[in-house]
């Protein structure tokens, strides 16, 4: 008998590699090879239009010695403080929308609006709204709340929290949608049972709702984590231009600036690799933290 003989239905459906080839070719050309190229070129003194020489890890050394780089890293870590807000706010609202609300679908649609709108365009609107002499401050002045008026986007103290709230604004509706779907998949009788046991809104939320969708909560947190590193460019570019100074810049904005504006290709390449490292590191930390928490919870139970 032959060692391995593919038979059965899978043989009838064997082959068809031609179907996979386009995906592999396109992703290789546009995503993988460029990434490899960046990694390779980060070891060069890479400038547009000039001969580049191999300089080993000098780009990385420069990077580590560059206070601006560390400032941007600091910004990213600061933004991560928004994570609990980005997770809990849509979670609570999705839970509250489950019942007792008039036309919950309408509200979900409204909250979901930012998901389809360009961050750059919406950033434009908020830049105008939050300008020092803009409508928000003007409205605060006229309603006698002038002491609350601030230079939202041009003051180092306020700009980062403002960005955190704008990320909440942008991602809130998607979060509500995903958590609503997760709640819908939970057997409803556990909520009824909890209510018969006398649970009120918050106790039902913490003791029944959150544990029953904790897988989704974790995935959403990881998704937000990746977003704050990867998809902030449109917002920052339009809203603050990274400013004041670099106090609101994210990694992707910073790299774009190094590359397109200043033409420091080598540095930008090294920064890109650092960003890839962060993208691997932080979710890994997240998974580690989850594993740790779960073992602790288990130990406490036993």
């Amino acid at each position: 008998m032959q060692a391995v003989k593919r038979r059965g239905w899978r043989r009838a459906l064997d082959g068809g590699l031609v179907l996979l080839v386009p995906a592999i070719v396109l992703e290789t050309l546009v995503l993988f090879l460029p990434l490899v190229h960046v990694a390779y070129r980060s070891l060069y003194d890479w400038q547009p239009g000039s001969v580049s020489t191999f300089i080993g890890f000098q780009n990385y050394q420069h990077l580590l010695a560059d206070p601006e780089f560390w400032q941007v890293i600091g910004n990213q870590l600061f933004y991560l403080l928004g994570l609990p807000l980005w997770v809990i706010a849509p979670l609570v609202v999705a839970f509250a929308l489950r019942e007792g609300v008039w036309r919950p679908g309408l509200f979900r649609s409204i909250y979901f609006l930012p998901a389809v709108m360009s961050p750059a365009i919406v950033g434009l609107v908020f830049r105008t709204l939050l300008a020092t002499d803009g409508p928000v401050n003007a409205a605060l002045e006229t309603s006698g709340l002038g002491f609350l008026a601030h230079p939202w986007l041009t003051d180092v103290t306020y700009v980062k929290p403002v960005v955190i709230f704008l990320v909440l604004w942008a991602s809130f509706g998607t979060g509500v949608l995903i958590f609503s779907a997760a709640f819908a998949a939970v057997p409803q009788n556990i909520f009824e049972a909890a209510r018969l046991d006398g649970a009120r809104f918050w106790s039902e939320f913490w003791h029944i709702a959150v544990p029953s969708v904790r897988g989704t909560v974790f995935l959403w947190a990881m998704f937000q984590l990746v977003c704050i590193f990867l998809f902030m460019f449109g917002w920052i570019y339009v809203l603050t231009g990274g400013g004041p100074g670099l106090s609101s810049a994210t990694m992707d904005f910073f790299i774009y600036q190094q590359f397109m504006r200043f033409g420091f290709y080598g540095t930008a390449a090294a920064q890109s690799i650092a960003l890839v490292g962060a993208i691997v590191l932080f979710p890994a930390l997240g998974y580690g933290a989850r594993a740790l928490i779960e073992t602790c919870v288990k130990r406490r139970r036993t």
Binding site: P34, V38, M251, D252, A268, A269, S272, L275
Partner: peptide
């Protein structure tokens, strides 16, 4: 999860 800026430079 490959950052867009990273692959966009060589592209």
């Amino acid at each position: 999860a490959i950052p867009m800026v990273a692959w966009l430079i060589p592209v």
